[in-house]
Each structure stands twice: as structure tokens, then as C-alpha cells.
């Protein structure tokens, strides 16, 4: 490929168009969040609540203002209650996974033991099955533990999901055997090897699991929908769509604030996220 051919230019143009389409939703959410009440109702009222007429498209607001954010901050305590619920759920799941999934993944990646193949199969199966299949069983056990309609109802089953084990065991398996042999010769115990070698070398994998799990549970819809009934316990992912219908003027600002923690975390850990995801794909 010494010369850039016409074909190459066409390909790059398609790529550029694709890129614009990919970032479009975020850009539109941002710009629309800066619209005043009147402008929002003018452009989006027709769709989001029944103001009649048709939607209008404006890439930039005519009169940019932070009004929507101010209103959201001062006037909607329910929104922040929901925000807190989301934070508790996502934080709880991530913390729990850090403890359990990392250990389990280390065992699956680094030890040979009877029943390993069966366990791998089990985790794969749990990875593939959609939430709805285990919904009833989860409900039954949470009911008998009297945990329904509490944060724990979402957090506890979330901790034991299979995806972190899958990703982590891949990135632990990538640690060269020689390093571990060397540590053994130096007299490190099994747990010492895990703490001193496994955790530091598997750090990109662990970071990426933290980020992916946070994104996953910040975004959780099915689990809270099934296990939480009290309105005041519902996380943002369920509260936001309700709110959008009620208050058009803050809809976009609320969406932006909702995605902010997830996107910030994504940017902070982007590099290790890519490494971790990549490690899960290579054998």
C-alpha cells in the first residue's frame, strides 16, 4: 500500500461517516441539554411529550443556557435519590466482584484440580444465559432470604455474575509461567504469589473488570425491574425514562448527568480497559 488509492480514500470516508454516526447521539444529547425550556419544547416537545407538531433539528441551541442543569440540581431531589441508588448498586457489585471474582479467576487460570473442566463449563453457561432465565430462581432465593426490594437483591446476584470471572481468568492465564515458577523457587506461598504477582500483573484485567461491571450495573435495567418494587429504591436507569416523560426541559441535562460517571470512568481507565478486553479475546 504505497499509494493511497481512490479505493482507500472511499474507505476512509466511509469510516469518517461511521465515526460521525457513532458520536452523534452523545453530541446531540450535549447540545440539546444546553437549550432553554422554550427551545426544548419547540424542538423536542412533539416527540417527548404531546405538544403537537413535529420535532425540529438543531445542531446547536440558539440561546445556550445552563438553566436545565440548574433546575435539575435545585429542583429534583428524586433524581439525586435515584442517582444515589445507582451508585450504591454499581459500587456494591464492583466491590463484591473484586473480592470473589478475582480469586475465582485466579484458581481457574492457574490451578489444575478435579472438576475444573466442569466448572469452566458452568461459568461459560452462566455467561451465555440471559438474565431472564435465572430471573425466577433468583427471585425465589431472594424471597426466602427476605432480601427482595432491598439494594442487596440487585447487588448479591450481581456479584456472582460470570463475565468478570471469564475476563479475569483470561488475563491471569496470560501471565508467563516462568514468573510464577521463579516466585515459587524464592519460597513464595500460593497466596503470596497471587498477591505479589497475580494481582499486579493482572492489573489491566482487574481494572477493566471494574469498569465493565460498573458500566453494566450503572446501566442495569432488568435486575432492578424484577427485584425492586419501591419507587424510592429504583436506580437512574429506571427513573430517567419516567422523568423524561414528565419534564421535557431537563430530559437532556438529566441524561448527561446520568452518563457522566460512566463516561468519566471510561476515560480514566480507557487504556487498561482496552488491554483487559483484548486479553479476554486472545488465547
Amino acid at each position: 500500500m504505497k499509494k493511497t488509492t481512490i479505493w482507500g480514500i472511499v474507505m476512509r470516508m466511509i469510516l469518517a461517516v461511521l465515526l460521525i454516526l457513532m458520536v452523534m447521539p452523545l453530541v446531540m444529547l450535549c447540545t440539546n441539554s444546553l437549550m432553554g425550556k422554550r427551545e426544548i419544547i419547540e424542538t423536542c416537545g412533539a416527540v417527548l411529550s404531546d405538544y403537537g407538531g413535529k420535532a425540529q433539528f438543531r445542531l446547536f441551541p440558539q440561546y445556550p443556557t445552563m438553566r436545565a442543569y440548574v433546575r435539575l440540581l435545585l429542583d429534583s431531589p428524586e433524581y439525586f435519590a435515584a442517582f444515589w441508588n445507582s451508585a450504591v448498586i454499581a459500587g456494591g457489585v464492583v466491590a463484591g466482584q473484586l473480592f470473589t471474582a478475582v480469586l475465582a479467576a485466579w484458581a481457574l487460570a492457574r490451578y489444575d484440580f478435579p472438576g475444573k473442566a466442569a466448572l469452566r463449563f458452568l461459568y461459560m453457561l452462566l455467561l451465555i444465559l440471559p438474565f431472564q432465565v435465572t430471573m425466577v430462581s433468583g427471585y425465589l432465593v431472594l424471597d426466602s432470604l427476605k432480601l427482595l426490594d432491598t439494594y442487596l437483591a440487585v447487588i448479591l446476584p450481581g456479584i456472582f455474575s460470570a463475565l468478570p470471572v471469564f475476563i479475569l481468568s483470561r488475563s491471569f492465564a496470560a501471565i508467563p509461567k516462568e514468573v510464577i515458577e521463579a516466585a515459587k523457587i524464592d519460597g513464595a506461598g500460593d497466596f503470596g504469589i497471587f498477591i505479589r504477582i497475580g494481582v499486579p500483573l493482572g492489573r489491566p484485567g482487574i481494572f477493566s473488570v471494574v469498569i465493565l461491571s460498573f458500566l453494566e450495573y450503572w446501566n442495569a435495567v432488568e435486575q432492578p425491574l424484577t427485584y425492586l418494587k419501591t419507587e424510592s429504591l429504583k436506580p437512574l436507569s429506571l427513573y430517567l425514562p419516567v422523568m423524561v416523560k414528565g419534564e421535557v426541559q431537563t430530559a437532556f441535562a438529566a441524561s448527561i448527568i446520568t452518563l457522566l460517571p460512566a463516561v468519566l470512568l471510561f476515560f480514566c481507565g480507557q487504556e487498561s480497559l482496552e488491554k483487559g478486553i483484548g486479553a479476554s479475546g486472545s488465547f
Partner: peptide
């Protein structure tokens, strides 16, 4: 990053955009 960013955006946020886009009276 432009391509990977969508995986960080919660469904609840972006659904507003998709509604605006795909509604009968939408964009």
C-alpha cells in the same frame, strides 16, 4: 475512542436520543 465510547453510555441516557431520532414525528 469515538468508536468505543458508546459502550460507556447507559441505555437510559441514549434512549432519549433514539426516541427523538426514530419517533414518527422525529428527526
Amino acid at each position: 475512542t469515538g468508536f468505543t465510547l458508546p459502550m460507556a453510555i447507559p441505555a437510559a441516557s441514549v434512549v432519549v436520543f433514539f426516541q427523538m431520532l426514530f419517533d414518527e414525528k422525529g428527526w
